[in-house]
Design a protein around this nucleic acid. Structure first.
Length: 245
DNA sequence: GCGACAG
DNA sequence: ATCTTGTCGC
């Protein structure tokens, strides 16, 4: 994987206004449609999907990326560098993308798709971490978040949702550029049998070069026995253990 | 001014 | 994200 748009790499040194302008440019370049070539690959049994995730030991950021095909790890990379920007909702890319991009560059295998911890189009300016990475790398990406950042659930059922439930998330007052647009879906990837206590859904959104439906399809396919898709779990695990040494 | 807010 | 033991429920 290579950085295609060096000028769009999020710079932690920019001021807030410049960061917002950068995200506006990302939104303008992002595509939320699935290319014909990817649609064909989505049904292949050797689909190559990677997950990327970050951990923050002390004042460093560790980024780990793990690529899987047919349930097997086929490539991985880990990078560590000083953290350069704080966590600010809506500006996550400026904290995590630098390290994540370096990790992506260190990967040898060519991916069909990259799963990212966080949002894609499900973002105040439709430019979440998954979208930013996708545009800079010109790589199909999907965002998977554990909590809802913005947008409104359309006709949500009463929790707990049964496994397989998908609820549309559309833009509202908090997403001025995407009013009433389909930004992503709340997806129940796993659920307990008894409504005693329940598992929350994950929030899936297209990052770049994929549609909301196909994004959800891929996440569903990558989920094995857990709430989160395997590539992200593997990356999460690798980033955590790499943070200890 | 108040609320809401991925990791 | 990170700091951290026990503990509730299948």
């Amino acid at each position: 994987m290579d950085i295609v748009h060096e000028d769009l790499v999020p710079d932690p040194g920019l001021d807030r206004e410049e960061m917002l302008a950068c995200q506006d440019r990302i939104r303008e370049r992002a595509s939320f449609q699935t290319p014909r070539s990817l649609i064909e690959r989505l049904s292949a049994d050797d689909l190559i999907v990677a997950g990327v995730d970050q951990s923050f030991p002390d004042d460093d950021v560790v980024s780990a990326i793990v690529a899987l095909a047919a349930g097997e790890v086929i490539d991985r990379a880990v990078v560590r560098q000083p953290v350069q920007f704080p966590y600010i909702p809506g500006l996550l890319s400026f904290r995590e993308a630098g390290a994540a991009l370096t990790a992506c560059t260190a990967l040898d295998v060519e991916l069909d798709l990259l799963l990212v911890d966080g949002n894609g189009r499900l973002h105040f300016r439709e430019a979440g971490l998954a979208t930013h990475l996708g545009v800079v790398l010109e790589q199909p990406t999907v965002g998977v978040a554990k909590r809802l950042l913005c947008g409104t659930l359309v006709d949500p059922p009463e929790p707990p949702y049964p496994t397989g439930t998908r609820v549309e998330i559309r833009g509202g007052e908090d997403t001025p550029t995407a009013r009433n647009k389909l930004l992503g879906v709340a997806m129940q990837t796993r659920q307990w049998d008894h409504p005693d206590r329940h598992i929350n859904p994950v929030y899936v959104s297209p990052g770049h070069r994929i549609s909301p439906d196909h994004a959800a399809d891929v996440v569903e396919r990558c989920v094995v026995d857990r709430k989160l898709p395997e590539p992200i779990r593997a990356a999460d695990q690798l980033a955590s253990e790499a943070a200890r040494d």
